[in-house]
Design a protein around this nucleic acid. Structure first.
Lengths: 194, 194
DNA sequence: TTGTAATGAGACAGATCTGTCTGTAGGGTG
DNA sequence: CACCCTACAGACAGATCTGTCTCATTACAA
């Protein structure tokens, strides 16, 4: 289970159908490459309803990022719980989870990095949401590292996050998940050297 | 000097003016966010001339990536030559150069990663050009590592490239170049552990 | 039943996109 | 001078984009 969970669109409100559809289309094709009309058609929602819930497309983009954030964090936690037993193995299980994600059929890189790349303006609210996501992941890594009893969990969490971002960037470019193994090896070295 | 060199557009051919303008605009605002008309206006070139030199916008995009590749490689080599004296220091000078780049006024992340993020299709010719760029950088890193006499230069080059990609991704997201220092510390640990 | 709020369907405006085409001007070479 | 190639200028087509608006329908609650 390395695919982020999607919810069937029956019994969802129009607003939820919009965000679910954006969740999939914006990630798969890119935000700028997907027009409002396509989101509406695949969500089965009318245009008036979209603009009743969101002032502009940017509002939908922010919700897209927030839902990506929530699903990703829940997914990562689940995978770490499944793949790691003791605190030490849970730390490195993060990289096994990332590898699974890189091998998933719908993998197209880091949704948050892609959003930052596509929306050039750093003041765009979606940028802020992306930064918040990374801060949350970093906090989770710091928690795992603290439980593993490392010396400087906060600093190491930042470095692990850098390794994850590097692995995901490499994996999507090369179409190959091996970079996740490399990141894991580096992380392992850092743990031994710490 | 951490800004990639731009060439004044006097005395350049229309084709060169187009590619130089794309070099700047596609990076600064994103490829999809910049229309052909804007490139034409800022390059001072007519539309018929553009389509005489390139079949479609994609052709210009590929040339944009290729010019980014050439300039970046030349720039990195220059900075490593300037910042590193002996073979060992040259290896870590790469990360000092990356930090300079992250602090540059026009910095907006990795042009090649951004291109991959924006153009979803992995078969797009610009993707191939981006992969070729990373392979060239990796080869350069392997050369530096070989000269420094490390044990497994090819493997370490791949890991250094992962660190660079992670640092650049982090820097553009956070608007702060500190990640380059973190990457340098990790690289230093890998060298000691190797 | 009746009133109200949410939604669907889709026309419409105005802008912008890529790409084609025509016509004209300039510059170098025979 | 005549020829040819390149480039500029810009109209144009056709598609697509975001966002607004009208109107009919549905669902639900008083």
């Amino acid at each position: 289970m390395s695919e982020l969970v999607e919810v069937p669109k029956d019994q969802l409100s129009p607003r939820q159908r919009l965000v679910e559809t954006a969740f999939r289309l914006f990630y798969e094709h890119g935000i700028n490459a997907v027009g409002i009309d396509r989101v509406l058609a695949e969500a089965g929602v009318s245009k008036a309803t979209l603009y009743r819930h969101f002032a502009t497309k940017d509002g939908l983009i922010v919700e897209f990022v927030r839902l990506r954030d929530a699903r990703y964090r829940a997914w990562l936690k689940d995978r770490v719980d499944a793949l790691g037993s003791d605190p030490e193995s849970r730390v490195l299980a993060v990289f096994a989870a990332i590898k699974e994600r890189c091998q998933a059929g719908d993998f197209r890189g880091c949704a948050f990095g892609n959003t930052v790349a596509e929306l050039a303006d750093p003041d765009h609210p979606a940028h802020q949401a992306a930064r918040e996501h990374k801060a949350a992941i970093r906090a989770y890594l710091a928690e795992l590292l603290t439980q593993a009893g490392v010396r400087e969990p906060e600093q190491l969490a930042g470095r692990f996050l850098l390794l994850i971002d590097g692995a995901v960037t490499t994996a999507v470019r090369d179409g190959c998940a091996d970079a996740a193994d490399e990141a894991r090896e580096i992380a392992s070295t850092l743990l031994r050297a710490g």
